[in-house]
Computed example of a mutant assay.
Amino acid sequence: MSLSPGWFKQLKQEWVIPEVIPERCVHSLCEVASCTRCVDACPQEAWLLDDASLKIDTSRCDGCGLCVAACTESALVGNSPVVEITPAINRRQFLRKALVFSVEDSMAPPVALPLIPFVPMLSLANCNGCDACIKLCPHQALQLENSDDEQTLAYRIQAEHCTGCGICRDVCERDAVEVRQMQPVNQQVGNTTIPLVQARCKACGSHFHYPADGNAVKQHCRICAQTNHHRQLFQVY
């Protein structure tokens, strides 16, 4: 059996080893990122993730492209998965399927609210206002808003910008951030504003802010509260 002259070139084009775009991969943006989408999607276990880097074993990769499709950050360049197309059906089969679908639609329950793929949720009781999630979010799904008169501050959660990378959750030292999936759109989900209380630390005098949580009042910034600095400031040894 003879092979066409360009068979090797065609095979090389179809079998592409995925490459990582560092500026998009969450592991390049955050050392404590816990995203494992490409690792979990690979049927050949070709992706290797450790504390230092994300690598691929080219001897195992078959170029299927499932990791490329699984990455919500578009941080991988390679082949897209092959999609199987349903064969064409004749007129009789089409009418039969249409009748089945019409009966199923008439028996279906009311249409539910549209869903948002990823929604960051903030625990007001746990958040200490460090702004780590705000500063590291690569898509500005979490923002710190300042009023025109600079008298009021607020956190704004724009879920439509969230890709579910999980950096906000991974960097939170208080476990105050949760990323939920497939949430229905309502008043509590989507574009949410969380008012912030502005205060001045009674120990070090620095200005800080934290989410308004009922009648809870904080007198010390997160640094002084964590180190008990306000208790040791005037202690004599």
Results as ranks from 00 to 15, higher is better:
92 R>G: 05
13 Q>N: 02
126 N>K: 08
32 V>G: 01
116 I>N: 08
40 D>K: 07
203 A>R: 11
65 G>M: 06
227 T>M: 11
118 F>K: 13
202 K>N: 11
175 D>E: 07
112 A>Y: 07
182 M>P: 02
237 Y>W: 04
53 S>I: 01
78 G>D: 07
12 K>L: 07
146 N>T: 08
203 A>D: 15
183 Q>V: 12
94 F>T: 09
208 F>W: 09
186 N>K: 00
108 A>Y: 08
140 Q>V: 05
133 C>A: 10
103 V>T: 04
1 M>G: 14
183 Q>F: 05
126 N>S: 08
199 A>M: 05
231 R>Q: 12
156 R>V: 11
24 R>P: 03
131 D>H: 05
26 V>T: 04
176 A>N: 02
123 S>A: 03
81 P>F: 04
214 G>H: 11
157 I>P: 06
4 S>P: 07
190 G>E: 02
193 T>I: 10
84 E>R: 07
101 F>H: 04
40 D>S: 08
90 N>I: 10
182 M>V: 02
205 G>Q: 14
46 A>K: 03
186 N>A: 04
86 T>K: 10
220 H>I: 08
110 P>H: 03
212 A>S: 12
118 F>D: 11
178 E>M: 15
131 D>T: 00
27 H>S: 05
225 A>H: 03
194 I>N: 03
60 R>H: 14
227 T>L: 04
68 V>R: 13
79 N>V: 15
27 H>P: 06
82 V>L: 09
117 P>F: 10
221 C>N: 04
3 L>E: 04
227 T>R: 13
168 C>R: 06
147 S>I: 05
20 V>T: 09
138 P>G: 09
229 H>A: 13
15 W>A: 15
221 C>M: 00
74 S>Y: 07
55 K>S: 14
158 Q>L: 03
45 E>K: 14
191 N>E: 14
60 R>Q: 10
8 F>W: 12
112 A>M: 08
237 Y>M: 02
234 F>T: 00
152 T>E: 02
79 N>I: 13
63 G>V: 11
173 E>W: 12
192 T>L: 13
206 S>T: 01
44 Q>V: 10
179 V>H: 09
54 L>P: 10
172 C>T: 01
40 D>T: 05
228 N>Q: 09
81 P>V: 06
114 P>D: 15
17 I>Q: 00
37 R>G: 00
70 A>W: 00
70 A>L: 06
193 T>P: 03
201 C>N: 11
95 L>K: 13
133 C>Y: 08
188 Q>K: 11
165 C>A: 15
32 V>C: 05
151 Q>A: 04
7 W>T: 13
70 A>E: 03
156 R>K: 13
86 T>L: 09
90 N>R: 05
183 Q>G: 11
168 C>N: 00
111 V>M: 15
79 N>Q: 12
118 F>A: 15
183 Q>S: 13
194 I>Y: 06
114 P>L: 06
137 C>H: 02
209 H>K: 12
176 A>W: 00
